[in-house]
Structure formats: structure tokens, C-alpha cells
Simulated assay, not measured.
Amino acid sequence: MGTVPPMRALLVVNPKATTTSERSRDVLVRALRSEVDLTVEYTLRRGHAAALCRAAAESGVDVVVTLGGDGTVNEAVNGLMNADAALAGRGATPAYRLPALGVVPGGSTNVFARALGLPRDWADGTSVILDGLRDGRHRVIGLGRADDRYFTFTAGIGLDAAVVRRVEQARLRGRTSTPALYVRSMVAQFLSGEDRKSPPLSLERPGESVESELSTIIIQNTAPWTYVGDRPINPNPQASFDHGLDVLAVRRLKVSSTTRTVTQMASLKGDPHGREVLRLHDQAEFAVVSTRPQAFQLDGDYLGERQKVHFASVPQALRVIC
């Protein structure tokens, strides 16, 4: 009898990952090479991780591992999902047609990895992946899709995305991404007064009445929405990789009601509510339409301005080693 060939794996490394060093990357490579036939690629530009992962999936790689933050994970997921059409017949759902995904946290926040219950430390995260490879352990999760782009944990239109835009602009000026930077950016954006008097957003669902005059909308594919340091922020505590999408919308950004909503989101229980709050659970699809261009983000990555985005839940999308 012949020996079973080792699993083929691709490691995608973001060399700008903020919490890893060249030494830690070398340790990770050696550890993975002890278990799989490994190819290592370093991202060179925006979109490179997506191209690498799509090519890997189409070539029959068994596992894709990312070392980076949520942006690297998002690109990898989009690369994998965009390869799915070429893999018809390999399985009943994308999760069993596509390579499994392993995530080693290397960014400043790592919301996706932490939502999966993975360790924050890259060394401990590597151990989880190695154990999962040996034991064949994985979890099947659903994704969200915004038009033709997939997301793992969150999307946002309005205030949420405008804050992400401010943070990215600050980072381009050399600032470090910290919880304090996000808080200052949120306060500055809120005080700018944009969209406080004439909320531009509407939410349209099949067979339901339109929800209009919304100022900002947060969409979640899992909980929490994000973290401030070690504290999870939970606009929609029931959101889950195992269900459809959850929505939190704020109607008017009044100082008193918005302060109350933010305080509720930051509490241990989460569960924001009130006259200005709209929440929807386990949604299969909907569209967000705006009377004027609005900031738009996916998985904490600012993607410009939009006036209409169609959102859908994509169940049974990926196998994740955890």
C-alpha cells in the first residue's frame, strides 16, 4: 500500500501584521511544515491575498492559513469564495468544496479570530491550528455578502463606516490603531453633525414595509461586533455564524439617545434598545438604499461610498480550523 501524501497548505503572510516579527513568522513556518506540504506567500499589495487564495483553491490546496489581521482574513475569504464556481462537483456546499481556513491572529484587533474563540497570541493560535490539522477538527460557518463582496463578521453604512474611514486616514498619517483612536474618531465624526437632521438611509426587505429615515446601519454575521481592548461591543448579541444576518440601525443621531445606545452596546449585556433603535435578527437578505452617498465598510476595511448595497446571508460557506 502506498503512503498517503501530506495535505497541501498555503500560508499567506501580511508582512505588515502589527503583532508579529520575522522570528515569529519563521517559527510558524517551521511548525506548519512539520505537518503539511507548505507554500508560503507574502502579500505585496491590496488584493494580493485574495488572488493568492483563489489560485490556491483552484489548484486543489487543502488548507489556507493567514497570518495577519481582519483585512487579510477578509481578502482570503473572498479569494476562496470567488474560486467556488470553478470547483462545482467537489461537494454539496462551498464549505466542503473549498480549502479549510486557518487564522493566526497578527493584527491589532483580530475580531474574526476572537469571535471563533481562538487565542489572541499568535503562538497559541498556531498550536490550535496544528492540533486541528492533526485531529481533522473544524467548524462550518456562514458568511455575509454585500453585493459581490463577502464579509466574516461585520458591515456598516453611515456613522460606523465613517469612523473606520477616519481611523484609516489617521493610520496613513502614522498613528497607531488603538481603542482610544477609535473612540476619538467616533466622537469627532458624531460632532461633525453629518446626517443628524435628515437621515438618508432606508432598509428594504422582501415582503416587508420599508424602514426609512435611518442615520446609520450596522450589520453583523456574528457577535461581538468589535472589541475595545478586551471588552466586546455587542449591538446584536444574538448574531451568530450559524444564523442569518443581524441588523442594528439608529434612526436619528440625537445626543441623548445616541449616548444611551452606545452605553448599552458597551455594557456586558449589550442589547441596545429605544425609540431611535431598530434591530433585526436572522435576516436572509435585504437592501440598504441612501438618498446620498454614504461611507461603507466591510470587516473594518473602508471601501468608499455607496448609495445602494444588497446584503445576503451565505450559510454553510467555509470550514474554519478552531
Score class of each variant (00 low, 15 high):
residue 60 G to S: 14
residue 60 G to T: 15
residue 60 G to N: 15
residue 61 V to A: 09
residue 61 V to N: 09
residue 61 V to S: 06
residue 61 V to Q: 07
residue 61 V to T: 15
residue 61 V to F: 15
residue 63 V to Q: 04
residue 63 V to R: 03
residue 63 V to L: 15
residue 64 V to W: 07
residue 64 V to T: 10
residue 65 V to Y: 04
residue 65 V to G: 04
residue 65 V to K: 02
residue 66 T to K: 04
residue 66 T to R: 09
residue 66 T to Y: 08
residue 67 L to Q: 10
residue 67 L to V: 15
residue 67 L to C: 14
residue 68 G to Q: 08
residue 68 G to Y: 07
residue 68 G to M: 03
residue 68 G to F: 07
residue 69 G to M: 05
residue 70 D to I: 01
residue 72 T to L: 10
residue 72 T to N: 10
residue 72 T to V: 06
residue 72 T to Y: 08
residue 72 T to P: 00
residue 73 V to D: 10
residue 73 V to K: 03
residue 73 V to P: 11
residue 73 V to C: 06
residue 73 V to F: 07
residue 73 V to N: 10
residue 74 N to W: 02
residue 74 N to E: 03
residue 74 N to K: 05
residue 74 N to Q: 14
residue 75 E to G: 06
residue 75 E to M: 02
residue 75 E to R: 02
residue 75 E to H: 05
residue 75 E to D: 13
residue 76 A to Y: 08
residue 76 A to E: 02
residue 77 V to I: 15
residue 77 V to R: 01
residue 77 V to H: 10
residue 77 V to Q: 02
residue 78 N to C: 06
residue 78 N to P: 03
residue 78 N to K: 01
residue 78 N to H: 04
residue 78 N to D: 05
residue 78 N to L: 00
residue 79 G to N: 13
residue 79 G to V: 09
residue 79 G to W: 10
residue 80 L to K: 05
residue 80 L to W: 13
residue 80 L to M: 15
residue 81 M to G: 11
residue 81 M to K: 04
residue 81 M to S: 09
residue 81 M to R: 11
residue 81 M to T: 06
residue 81 M to D: 11
residue 81 M to P: 13
residue 82 N to K: 14
residue 82 N to T: 15
residue 82 N to Y: 06
residue 82 N to L: 12
residue 82 N to A: 11
residue 82 N to I: 00
residue 82 N to W: 14
residue 82 N to M: 10
residue 83 A to M: 01
residue 83 A to Y: 03
residue 83 A to F: 03
residue 83 A to E: 02
residue 83 A to C: 04
residue 83 A to R: 01
residue 83 A to S: 07
residue 84 D to N: 13
residue 84 D to Q: 00
residue 84 D to L: 00
residue 84 D to H: 01
residue 85 A to C: 01
residue 85 A to P: 00
residue 85 A to Q: 12
residue 85 A to V: 12
residue 85 A to L: 05
residue 86 A to M: 08
residue 87 L to A: 04
residue 87 L to Y: 03
residue 88 A to H: 11
residue 88 A to D: 14
residue 88 A to Q: 14
residue 89 G to H: 13
residue 89 G to A: 09
residue 89 G to R: 13
residue 90 R to E: 11
residue 90 R to G: 01
residue 91 G to I: 08
residue 92 A to G: 05
residue 92 A to M: 06
residue 93 T to P: 00
residue 93 T to H: 14
residue 93 T to E: 14
residue 93 T to W: 10
residue 93 T to A: 12
residue 93 T to Q: 12
residue 94 P to I: 00
residue 94 P to F: 00
residue 94 P to K: 00
residue 94 P to G: 01
residue 94 P to S: 01
residue 94 P to C: 00
residue 96 Y to K: 06
residue 96 Y to V: 14
residue 96 Y to S: 15
residue 96 Y to L: 00
residue 97 R to D: 13
residue 97 R to T: 11
residue 97 R to E: 12
residue 98 L to Q: 07
residue 98 L to V: 09
residue 98 L to G: 11
